[in-house]
Design a protein around this nucleic acid. Sequence first.
DNA 1: TCTGGGGTCCTAGGACCC
DNA 2: TCTGGGGTCCTAGGACCC
Length: 402
Amino acid sequence: MKSPKIIFHIDLNSFFASCEMAEDPELIGKPIAVAHDHPLRKGIILSPNYEARKFGIKTTMLVRDALLLCQELVVIDPDMKLYEQYSQLFYEYLLSITKFVERASIDEAYLDVTDKASTIHPLILAEQIQKDLLEKFKLPVSIGIGPNKFLAKMASDMKKPLGITVLRKREIDQLLWVLPIEDMLGVGKKTAPKLKMLGINTIGDLANFTDVELLKRTIGEVNTLSLREKAWGIDDTFVDYSNDDSVQSISHAHTFDHDLYDPVIIKKTLKVLANAVSYRLQKRQYRALTVGIQIKYADFHQINRSKSLNKPVQNEVDIYSIVEDLFDDLFVTGDLIRLVGVFANRFSQDEGKEKQVSLFDDLTKIEKENEIQKIILGVQNTFGKDTIKFGYYERGKKDKNE
DNA sequence: TCTGGGGTCCTAGGACCC
DNA sequence: TCTGGGGTCCTAGGACCC
C-alpha cells in the first residue's frame, strides 16, 4: 500500500488584474478589468479583479456589458509581457520550495510536496507560500491540497481569493459529490447538458451512475473512463516537473475589424500570420510536417484545412505558399470572412537540439515514477496514436493495484 | 450575450498496405 | 466473381482549458 501523495494546486487569483494592481497601487480598491477593448468589435473581459466581480462582471463578458454593470470600471489593455514576467517570478519562487513543480499555465502550478511532509505540515507550508507570494510580489493565490492533481485542482477552486482548501479522498462524498456537474474539470458547455439528460446533475450522480455503456455512447469512451475515475477521486497523473517547454502546435489567428469579402486583404493577413508562425518555429528550432489554415465565416461557422508534407518546413516563404494554396482551394467569391488563422504541427527538431533523457541514477521514488511517466508519454509522442492504448492499459493496471 | 487567441487531446472516416 | 481483417497515416472536426 502506497502512502498517499500530497499535491498542491496553486492558482493565481485574477492574475492579469493582480499584475496590473501590483504595478500600479493606485488601482487597488477600484473595480478594474483587463480586456481587449477592440475599437470596432466588442472586446471581451479577460480578467476582472474582485472589486469588479462584486458588480457581477465575469471573464468573457463583453466590455460594453461590463460597463453597463459598473460605469467606473477601469478597463486596461492586456500586457502579456508583464504577465509573463510575473508568472516567471511565481514559478521561480515555487522552485525555491521544491523542485517538483509543474507549470500548468501562465497562472497556475502543481507542486508535489510529499517529500516535505516529514519536516513541515502541509497546511503550514501552504500558508507560508500564500503569505510569501502576497508579500514579495503582491500576488494573491488560492491553494488546493489533495492526494492527486485532480482533487488539488478542484480544492483550489472552492475558496477564492486567498483560500486554502484540503480535499481528502474520504471527504469526496461531502465536498466533491455535492458540486454541480458543470463545475467538474473536464465537463464543459457541451458535455454538461448531455449528462443532465441522463439525470446526472452533480459529480456524485456521475460517480454513482451504473449504466456505463450508455455513458460511453453519450460522451465517448475515453471521456467516460476518465471522468468516472475523477468523480471517485482517482487521478494517477504525475506532477511533471521536467519544465519541458515543448509544444505540439503553433498557431496565430486574427479577427478582422469588419467581416471581409476581399481576398487580397485576407491573403495579406495570412502572410503576416504565416510569418509569425515561421518566426516561432525558428525560435524553437522546429520544422513542421503539417501546415494548415483556419477560417471563421461571418456566421461563426469554422473550418480548417491542412496539408501534410514530405519535407518539413520552417521559413515563411514555404509556409505561405502552402497557406495560399489551401486558401485558393477554399475561397469562393462572396464569402464573408471574420477570422483567419495559420497553424503548424507535427514537428521535427533541428539537428543538435535533441534532449537527453536523464538516467535513473540516484533518483528518489517520486523521481523514478515521474521518469516512467515521461517515458510512457515519450513513447506515445514518438509512435503515435496506437500506443495511447498502451498508455491507458498501463493506467488501468495501476488502478487495480490501488 | 452576437461571442479573442493560443493551446491540448479525442474521434471518426477514408486511403492505402499487407 | 466474390471474399477478410488489421494497422497506419491523413484530414477534418469537436470539446475543453486558461
